[in-house]
Structure formats: structure tokens, C-alpha cells
């Protein structure tokens, strides 16, 4: 089982290709008309730009797994006897796995 993952070669090759691509990149056009209307981020509506709101980061992912996250948030409630109760449950789970099997 020879584990032949050489990170050094990977990095060397990466930097070589990066250098070659950067040369090709420099041939492109560099100048652009600074702080004109061009540089304002494109937005079709009238309302000004807002930063990403936390609620809707990865909205698609959470919308898909709504029921799962509802269940998961039920587990983590902040009262002590919930935690102690869960500890006892998992203790009996381990007790049963060790003693019965």
C-alpha cells in the first residue's frame, strides 16, 4: 500500500502552469475606464445594492431539506433535562450494544 501522494510535485506543476497561463493572461487588455458608470455593479431594479443577508444564504439547500432542519432544531433546545435525557438514551444505546450482542 504505497501512498504516493506527492504534494510537492503537485504544487510545482501548479505554479508552472499558473506562470504560463499568467503570461497568456497579460497579453489581454489591461486598461478600463475607472470609476465611471461601467464599474457600478449591474442591477436591473431601482433599489440600491445590499450585502447578502444571512437568512437567504443557500436558500435552495434549506428549502429542500426543510423537514430535516425542523427535526434537527427540535433536538437542540436549551433546557437541561433535555440534555440529561438524551445522555441517558445514548447511554442505554451503548449499554445494549455492548451487553446484548
Amino acid at each position: 500500500m504505497s501512498i504516493v501522494y506527492q504534494p510537492k510535485i503537485l504544487l510545482l506543476l501548479f505554479s508552472l502552469i499558473f506562470f504560463i497561463i499568467y503570461l497568456f493572461y497579460l497579453t489581454g487588455e489591461k486598461k478600463y475606464k475607472k470609476d465611471t458608470v461601467q464599474t457600478i455593479a449591474y442591477f436591473s431594479g431601482k433599489t440600491p445594492y445590499q450585502n447578502i443577508k444571512l437568512q437567504n444564504v443557500y436558500w435552495g439547500f434549506f428549502k429542500n431539506f426543510e423537514k430535516l432542519y425542523l427535526f434537527l432544531s427540535k433536538i437542540q433546545r436549551e433546557n437541561t433535562n433535555d440534555y440529561v435525557f438524551m445522555f441517558i438514551i445514548w447511554l442505554t444505546f451503548i449499554l445494549l450494544t455492548i451487553c446484548l450482542i
Binding site: 499558473f18 497561463i21 499568467y22 493572461y25 497579453t27 489581454g28 487588455e29 489591461k30 486598461k31 478600463y32 475606464k33 470609476d35 461601467q38 464599474t39 457600478i40 455593479a41
Partner: peptide
């Protein structure tokens, strides 16, 4: 595309914006 101007938006972070395509 290589001939056209490559515009960098106002509040963008220049070094991430330019390096990530390469």
C-alpha cells in the same frame, strides 16, 4: 474577449477577483 476591457467593479476585492479565473 482578450481585446475588450476587463472591468473590475467598484467595491470588488481586486486580487481575489482577478486571480480566481486564472
Amino acid at each position: 474577449l482578450m481585446i475588450k476591457e476587463s472591468i473590475i467593479p467598484k467595491y470588488a476585492i481586486k486580487w481575489i477577483f482577478e486571480l480566481s479565473p486564472i
